Amino acid sequence: MRTVQRDLFVLSSLLLLGTLALTGCTPEPAPPAPQASETSAPTDSPVFASDEEALAAATEAYAAYLAAGDEAEESGSPSRELFLSLSSGEAHRQDLSVAASFDDQGWKQVGSTSFDSMAIQSTKITVDGGWEIKVYVCLDVTKSDIVDSSGTSVSKTDRPLRLPLEVAFIGTEQSSNYLQIAESRVWSGSNFC
């Protein structure tokens, strides 16, 4: 996966974390158990050969996204541009908004983020011939923080450190090794983390 894609992926996650850290948002109860993926394709060919293949692709893309976010620097830097290239749609708009807010406040993310418990929710071929993978994942921010220009933490002390998320990835035939995050939101059901 491209370095730019990874950096953008991480920045997006960090922005989500920053928003959650500042608002004190806590997830609602856990989601239902993951269901077998649903493939709704206009053709007979599946999106991936198996759910395991789709899960591996999503795992690689999410790891790259988080790593890029951990490394993303100030606006206009190559690491910030890389991070922003790993998202599209709603997730990209969210990443841009959080990045602008961090820049305005003089904040930055320090440390590293990780994840576990990723499970496929669904896979499908989209109307435009691309594909989408939706997953449930536990985002772990125990080793990261948001600090101001003096290095003082601006995160709420009671912020959730493990967040149940629903994340959507999109890709196209032309970029089969390239997934972008299209959506990332705190799961509104039971906390499965």
Rank of each mutant, 00 (worst) to 15 (best):
S117L: 08
T126N: 02
E132V: 06
S101A: 10
Q105M: 08
Q121E: 14
S112I: 13
E132W: 00
C138P: 01
T113Q: 07
I133K: 00
G111Q: 11
G111M: 13
D128R: 04
G111N: 12
G106D: 14
D116Q: 06
Q121A: 06
E132K: 05
V135D: 00
S117W: 08
K108T: 15
V135S: 05
Y136S: 10
G129A: 06
V110L: 14
S117K: 15
I120Q: 07
C138T: 10
V110P: 13
Y136G: 10
T123G: 03
V137A: 01
C138M: 03
S117P: 01
V127N: 13
S117V: 01
Y136R: 09
F115K: 03
E132L: 10
W107A: 05
K124M: 15
W131T: 00
K124G: 10
E132G: 00
I133F: 03
F115D: 00
I125C: 12
T126Q: 02
T113I: 09
F115W: 00
D103G: 05
V127L: 14
Q105D: 09
D104Q: 12
Q109M: 09
G130T: 01
I133N: 02
K124T: 15
G129S: 14
I120F: 15
S114I: 02
S112E: 14
K134P: 06
K108A: 09
Q109E: 13
S112W: 10
I125P: 06
W131P: 04
S101R: 14
L139N: 04
Y136P: 00
S117R: 08
K134E: 14
V127W: 05
Y136I: 09
T126F: 03
I133A: 00
V137L: 06
W107E: 11
